[in-house]
Design a protein around this nucleic acid. Sequence first.
DNA 1: TAGATAATGAACACGGTGTTGACTAACTTT
DNA 2: AAAGTTAGTCAACACCGTGTTCATTATCTA
Lengths: 218, 218
Amino acid sequence: MAQEKKEDRRVRRTRKLLTQALTKLLQEKQANEITVKELTDLADMNRGTFYMYYRDIYDMLEKTQDEMFEKLNEIFALREDGEVTEQTKPILLDLFRFIGEHREMCRVLLSPNGDMSFLHRLNEVLREKCLHLYLDSEPVANDEEFDYRYSFVVYGCAGLIRAWVGNDCGEPPEKMAELASRLIISGGIRQASVPERDGRGGKQAPGREAGAGDPSGR
Amino acid sequence: MAQEKKEDRRVRRTRKLLTQALTKLLQEKQANEITVKELTDLADMNRGTFYMYYRDIYDMLEKTQDEMFEKLNEIFALREDGEVTEQTKPILLDLFRFIGEHREMCRVLLSPNGDMSFLHRLNEVLREKCLHLYLDSEPVANDEEFDYRYSFVVYGCAGLIRAWVGNDCGEPPEKMAELASRLIISGGIRQASVPERDGRGGKQAPGREAGAGDPSGR
DNA sequence: TAGATAATGAACACGGTGTTGACTAACTTT
DNA sequence: AAAGTTAGTCAACACCGTGTTCATTATCTA
């Protein structure tokens, strides 16, 4: 599944050194300012070695992200066999734990020197794997604002992650997952109230008792 | 203020053509794949002309953003003399109107081919010019989650903007500003409820009537 | 109309790129 | 531990986009 047998030790070593060097350089400058030469100098290896694995810096950036998301999807796949109806928290917890394990790379990729395509892939994952579970029992009809609220929440979670890794993951993943869960619910998934004009506090989702699905149940 | 007299017509023309070409190319590919040659070919001008204005593609990207934020700050400056206490809506409306006027550039800059530093600058503006107003009357003490909620909301707004420009600004700016305002309030600025253990539903901001902007009233 | 300045086109050296081939070092398998 | 395999090294190479220059032409402002 994960890999055919184990990789050659030299390959692991080289890949790791390159990744470390890239991470370090991205803390200082944007990708376009990074040359293959200085990357391999920093990693203390021959320039030609780089080309055994990557076509250029951007190819490396992309492949590195591919690996991350592959791993993340493997983790999520383990959850998929179990019934999804229990609650979404475990998924969020998996996510934050994973991010925490890859904090350095995530931090630079979400920094100003980072990569917009990474953010978008992260948001896709949030959308499809983490957040959609909050909606299974919510058949709101003709709510044209829904997509916007959804985007708000997805990006909000990304912001939460960004702040967390920027803070070197100082809080435990459990706390972050719980906080995320709360913000997802209060922050837009359910229809927000329309304060002015009419006093109705937003349609409640049918069949969804207030408070259900939030962390109090665990 | 804005500019010393008017720019030479040729300069305006050249800048405009370059910007249009860059916008178009960024719809198709990432910045690192764009060469000065193809950019000036597309703009139908001499390659050397590009270097009269920019050092390279990334310099152009940066200077273009500088101009946008300069304009935006000028707009915000007009609001600053008036008392800020009335309500934040006008600022948000200014923002969405501005974004709408620059929808093409904003769309590509927030796309996967976009620029993370743009997102961060946008978020800074949201933080300091738009959202901080929502907090003037909220002296919450020792709320260690505050920064995280703030990040959630700031990024959430960015997501809202992203979705809007991705939708070619189909909704009127007024509607978006109103929606943003609602989401900001319900989505994290005010302390989210802490459902477990003790039943207190989060400190309410003093002088703020309950129920406004909170769908479930809890 | 005159003076100023932006844009053109050609030419140039520079430097990072991506690739090659022979050699050496390190790993895996039996 | 030896043999065979594969990764990494080193030097060399042509290529190409870059960034700059200068004389010339086109276009603008006053």
